[in-house]
Structure formats: structure tokens, C-alpha cells
Amino acid sequence: MSYYFAMIGTRDNPIYEAELGTFKQGGDGTPKFSAEMKELNPFIIHSSLDIVEDLQWATNSLYLKIIDNYYGYYVSAYVTPTNIKFMLLHENKNEENIKQFFIEVNDLYLKTLLNPFYSVNDPIKSTMFDSKIKLLTKKYL
């Protein structure tokens, strides 16, 4: 099972994206998307942005669960209070774990924000952030 994770900023610009593979059931953590899927992933996420913007006003909670479906691939979303959207493309419904994953990514994002050299909507290029995301994948996905 592979996952495609993206963080979208307030101007609909991607801040961070990563292809992650599952560690459960003997997976080794490498993402296995076919070549066509690799190209389509960002588009799928982008097209569901409209749905996110509608849904975020409908509910009080930050975690928006599964918002879209593309031929068997589910898209889940989480919106931070400052309108940064975390989107995850996944194949199996795993709501509880995905929710925990999003919450921990939120914590990581907060720490990035505390860096005085980082302004909102800047792309996140830090390798530390990358490795921490990989650790979180190991834990939850």
C-alpha cells in the first residue's frame, strides 16, 4: 500500500509532498505507484481541493476524513487553523491511524513555523522534516 502525502498552503501552492510506502504487513516502506499513477497523484489531490474548501466550513473539527474517491483511491484531508491543508492519497480506509498521522504532522509543522527563518507558505526543504515524516509513516501507516 502506498500513500501520497501533500501539504498545500494558503494560496493553493504545494509546500511539501512525499510518496510514502506502508510498513505494515511486511511492506518495506517504499512506495509502489505505477508510472501513470505517479504523474496523476498531484492532479488528484489538486482536484479535491475544491471539495476541501467547501467542507471545511461545514464542520468544527480539523480532520475531514475521506472527502473524495478516484477509482479506488481515497483522498483524506485535514485543515489546520491557519488554512494549511494536509492531503493524503491512500488505498485502504484506515481513518483512525490517518487521523493520528495528521495530528502528528501538525505538531511537526508547528515546529517548522517556530523557525524564524521560515515564513508561511515557504516550501519545506529540511531533511529533518523529511526523516520525521518517514518515522511517522512507520508508526501509523
Binding site: 515546529k111 517556530l114 523557525n115 524564524p116 527563518f117 521560515y118 526543504k125 529540511s126 529533518m128
Partner: peptide
């Protein structure tokens, strides 16, 4: 705390 130097090589 929480600071990472900017990534422009010089910093």
C-alpha cells in the same frame, strides 16, 4: 530553540 539556519549555503 527550533531554529534551522536557512539553506542558502552561506548561512
Amino acid at each position: 530553540e527550533f531554529v534551522e539556519l536557512p539553506d542558502d549555503g552561506k548561512a
